[in-house]
């Protein structure tokens, strides 16, 4: 059975493009010194994954990927990097713990090899397909996804609303200056 016979040239081209973009960005995050460059590499990876989502006909998720990740999360990263001024370059030539990098490389390669081997050797039984809802596909899946999120996953959707509120409150509490009451008291004293 020839795997390559079944796929068309444009599909392969789009897949290769998305894989090249995301892998180049990922390696970029790994090797650059400056955190700002790492954030820009992250944008490239996220864009590559968005292209892969389009190839998988997940149009809505591709758009959300660009808007939320590249638009909001990476901007937040860049904002914190520039706010803190931590473009202090990390020295990548020294290895603080002896043998850390080879150990990490062996562990990660072992992980990757075992997952891929499981995928090719193992035999997986899946239950009845389309349990949640049929993914109709062709004309985009926004309607399918919306129907699932607002019916089957309604409780999870409401829970994420609570999670986001908690996260915002937590961020405000964490980022507040630790001696805010004291400073306020000083200001009050100065005013009197």
């Amino acid at each position: 059975m020839n795997l390559l016979a079944a796929v068309t040239i444009p599909d392969v081209a789009i897949f290769v493009l998305s894989a090249a973009l995301s892998l180049a960005g990922a390696v970029g995050i790994l090797v650059v010194k400056n955190p700002v460059h790492a954030a820009l590499s992250l944008v490239m990876t996220l864009f590559g994954i968005a292209v892969a989502f389009i190839e998988l006909q997940a149009d809505f998720l591709a758009a959300v990927q660009i808007i939320v990740y590249a638009g909001a999360i990476v901007v937040l990263f860049l904002f914190v990097i520039m706010f803190l001024g931590v473009d202090k370059r990390e020295d990548l030539s020294v290895e603080p713990i002896v043998g850390q990098r080879p150990t990490a490389a062996v562990l990660v390669l072992g992980l990757m090899a075992s997952i891929i081997a499981l995928g090719f050797i193992g035999h997986f039984e899946v239950g009845p397909q389309a349990q949640t809802a049929e993914l109709t596909g062709a004309a985009g899946n926004v309607a399918d996804l919306g129907r699932a999120v607002f019916t089957t996953y309604l409780f999870a959707f409401e829970a994420t609303a609570g999670l986001l509120v908690i996260a915002v409150i937590g961020a405000v509490v964490l980022a507040r200056k630790p001696d805010a009451p004291k400073a306020a008291a000083l200001v009050e004293e100065g005013g009197q």
Binding site: L76, A148, G170
Partner: peptide, 24 residues
């Protein structure tokens, strides 16, 4: 099955919350 894509939607939300708290 649309379940996987719905899960990705929630993962995106949780990732956003995680980044906010982590950067804080």
């Amino acid at each position: 099955d649309v379940g996987g894509e719905a899960t990705v939607f929630f993962v995106l939300v949780v990732a956003a919350a995680e980044v906010v708290v982590g950067l804080g």
